[in-house]
Design a protein around this nucleic acid. Structure first.
Lengths: 243, 243
DNA sequence: GAGTGGTCTAGACCACAGA
DNA sequence: CTGTGGTCTAGACCACTCT
């Protein structure tokens, strides 16, 4: 069969195996939560040794793309509320380190043509449409974050029409639209609260706010969501661990 | 010799090898920049196979503790200006992503008894002494950050007496005092500029500032430095990548 | 018990650096 | 040329899960 070796591709075998696995995820052949064939089965299919498949798996596990369970098998990683909390939500309460439970209140929801900036950030055509969600997130019943979320309409057709908008959007993208968020880049600034923000967050106008400007990407590097969160950091802080 | 197997310790062999290697770094037997024995040499010493040593090395390379050079050997990772920039300095210019060159201006330097808060954060005795540095960092000649740095005096005796205080302190800690910063935890807040900060940063009082509260740790988890940086984020942003 | 991943070993060959 | 890490293979045994 020589599925891998017949097309030598580039570089080490394990990297080629890795790329093939990722490609199957991108193509939707393997979906989040699904169990992969065993290491030996894949080794036979790709005509490499089991150790080579293992090495490819190892790398993908480190990238949070696969999850192994001894005795059960290897699975495509899926977003879960718990996982999401730690990976993509870095605001922690000031004293304890525990991320408090959250609720969201929708402020506005609209489907409209994208702005020039949105077109640039999301790499979509200037005439494309987007879904724009604004909401306030509360922790322990106190409003803490005001979020402005922009997603290309094409990626999530029908969102908000027949279904509720859940707290954890990334699970929704994944489960309902087959869009898996894999990476995000955040730019943080300190900004003064505007009048309308002050109203939503029970702050005074001009108070310092932490602004988190996040662009989220799928597996193949396509930007999927642009989210700007403005956070009241008087009782919380953004946690960043450097290794 | 069965150096590893004779004392079965706990868990997998490669993890024990890993721990032994880390211990030698903590003990100063192997110092930053130094070349380690080859995989085969260590395998013989520890009485394991070369593959097991390799697996231990792999993990340590992922943790930024070792660096491999094909054909040359494996080395203890050392802080370099370039490495430091990417690992522990996340402020980037707003437009380009390139971290601009920096200069520092010393505001104050003193050796004194630690405060209660400093004792708590640095886990040192309430009667211990600390070195306290305050300085302003500029990027492209404009003042951007005001830093307040507190280090236990015991760890860096003599600092600032006979030598200059360099821009990159972590290199100094490592090279002059054998203290290697391996991990840091940062808590970010938005804060209003105080009068004295406003003066140093050429801002108006009350303008929003990004405060970075960082605790830095050595290999064995000892806190070594407490640093609070207050940043003007009008032309820069704190970059955080989530995977 | 059968199947899976987890660990460990042993040996082969390659690519690179340095004397 | 020698020694190093980089890759790949093959096979053994263990620990865990499920039926």
């Amino acid at each position: 069969m020589h599925s891998v070796r017949a097309t030598p591709g580039e570089g080490p075998l394990f990297a080629q195996v890795q790329a093939l696995i990722i490609q199957r995820m991108v193509d939707g052949i393997w979906t989040p939560g699904e169990r992969l064939p065993s290491e030996f089965a894949l080794a036979e299919e790709f005509n490499v040794s089991q150790g080579t498949v293992r090495k490819a798996f190892d790398a993908l596990v480190h990238e949070n793309l696969l999850i192994r369970h001894q005795g059960r098998g290897t699975f495509i990683a899926a977003h879960s509320a718990k996982r999401e909390l730690y990976r993509f939500f870095h605001l922690v309460s000031k004293d304890g380190v525990t991320p408090p439970p959250q609720t969201s209140r929708l402020i506005s929801f609209e489907r409209r043509k994208c702005s020039a900036e949105e077109s640039r950030r999301l790499k979509i055509s200037k005439s494309a449409h987007v879904v724009n969600i604004q909401r306030v997130r509360s922790m322990n019943k106190a409003p803490v974050i005001i979020e402005n979320i922009v997603v290309p309409d094409a990626l999530i057709t029908g969102l908000g029409e027949d279904n509720e908008i859940p707290n954890e959007l990334y699970q929704l993208y994944e489960q309902s639209y087959g869009v898996t968020i894999h990476k995000a880049i955040e730019h943080l600034h300190a900004r003064a609260t505007t009048r309308s923000e002050a109203c939503h967050l029970s702050l005074i106008e001009g108070a310092p706010l932490l602004e988190i400007d996040r662009l989220a990407f799928t597996l193949d590097g396509t930007p999927v969501e642009w989210r700007v969160s403005r956070c009241d950091t008087s009782a919380h802080s953004y946690l960043s661990e450097l290794f």
